[in-house]
Amino acid sequence: MKRREFLTVSAAVAAGTLAAPALIRPARAAGKELRILTWEGYADDQWVKAFEEKNGATVSVSYTGSVDEIFAKMTASEGADFDVIAIETSSYKRLTQEKLLQPLDQSKLPNAKNLMPAFQKVAAVVFDGKTYASPFAWGSIPLIYSTDTFQTPPDSWEVLWDDKYKGRIIVMDDANNAIVTTALTLGIPDPFNLTDEQFGQVKTKLLAQKANVASYYAGFDDGVSIFAQGGIDLMMSMGEPQAPMLKKQGANVGLVIPKEGAIGWIDCWAISAKARDVDLAHQWINAMLDEAVGTYISSKTGYGNTTNQSVNVEAGLTYADKLVFLQAPEDFAKRIEVWNEIKATPVQP
C-alpha cells in the first residue's frame, strides 16, 4: 500500500464520522459548477455537500491516481477541464512553467489566517513573487526505530551507516527520497539541485549504506511486514502511518526526525489557469482551510493538517518546521538512473 492508497482507505473508513461545520443552505443556482481534480480522500461527501449547499453550486469531482496523470489531464485541455486541482509541492514548478495554474488571490481566502506559521510561506509554490497554491495536508519521510534496541531515539541519519546495525536496516525503494535524504545527511544545502560532484558524493554514500541494508521495500505494507517479522532495528519510513501499523502488529517502535531534518511533503489546492469560475474556486479552497477540515485530515488519516495545530499536537505531529519540503529535482531521470546503478552494484565483501 502506497501513501495515496493509505489515504484513500483511511478516508473511506472515516467517511461520515466527522460532521461538517454548520452552513447556511441557499437555493442552488442553475449552471453554477465547480470541477475538481484531486486524490481520493480530499473531496469527501460531507465537505462536497456542505459546499454545494452553502454556495448554491454543483461540485463535479474527478479522481486521479498519480501526479503524471494530473499533468496529462491538465495539458490535454490546457487546464480548461478543471477549476481546482490538488497536487504535491514538487509538481508545481512543472505546472506553472506550462502556464497551467493561476496565482491565488489571498483577499478571497480569509481562512488562510488559519494556516500555521510553517505553511504561511512555502517556497515551492511561490513563483515570481506570486503564490500559486494553498497547503492542505502534510507528512514526512521519517526514521522509525526499535525501542527495544534504542533506549533513546537515534539523532542522526548516520545511524543507517553504522556497522553495528548491518543487516538490520530496511530502506524504501525510492530514488528521489533516498537521494534527498542522503544529501541532507551529507549537509548539502540544496538537496533538489545537485551538481555532478554532489551526485558523486551521494552515490558513494548510498553504496556504503548498501552493505547494511537487509532489504529495499516498496509500499507501506511491505515495509511494515518486513520490520514486524523481527530482526530489523531501523527503517527509512514512507510516512507516519507505518509506526501505528507496526505497533498494531506488536512491534515496539518510535518515530524521529533526525537532526539533519527530513523530507516533508505538502498536498495543496491550486486553481487552473482556465478555471470557469475563479471566485467559486477560491471559495472551495477557503472552505478546505476551515479548522474542522484540518481536524478530519489528522484525526482520520494520521497525516498532518495545516490549520489546526492542537490536533497535530495530539497526534505528535509537531515537527513541520524541521522538514525540507519536496521540490522538483534538477533531473528526475538522472536520479532514477543513479538509484538503479546503486541497487545493481554488488556489495563489496
Rank of each mutant, 00 (worst) to 15 (best):
R3F: 10
A15F: 02
I24S: 01
A27P: 06
R28K: 15
G31F: 04
Y42K: 02
E53V: 01
K54P: 00
G56L: 04
V59D: 07
S60L: 06
S66N: 11
A72H: 00
T75L: 15
T75E: 15
E78V: 01
D83H: 10
E88F: 11
S90D: 05
S91T: 02
Y92R: 03
P103C: 07
Q106S: 09
Q106W: 09
S107I: 00
S107M: 07
M116K: 11
V126L: 03
V126Q: 12
V126C: 07
Y132N: 14
S134T: 14
W138D: 01
F150V: 15
F150K: 01
D155T: 13
W157K: 05
V159K: 01
K164G: 10
G167R: 06
R168Q: 14
R168T: 06
D173A: 14
D173K: 13
D190R: 04
P191E: 10
F192C: 02
T195S: 14
D196I: 04
E197D: 11
V213L: 06
L246Y: 15
K248L: 12
Q249I: 05
A251W: 11
N252D: 14
V253N: 13
G254D: 07
L255M: 13
V256F: 03
I257Q: 03
E260D: 12
S272W: 06
A273P: 01
H282C: 00
H282F: 04
N286L: 13
T295V: 04
Y303E: 09
T306K: 06
V311F: 00
V313W: 04
A315T: 05
A315H: 08
A315V: 02
G316S: 08
L323E: 04
I336F: 14
N340C: 05
N340S: 10
E341N: 12
I342K: 14
V347T: 12
Q348T: 09
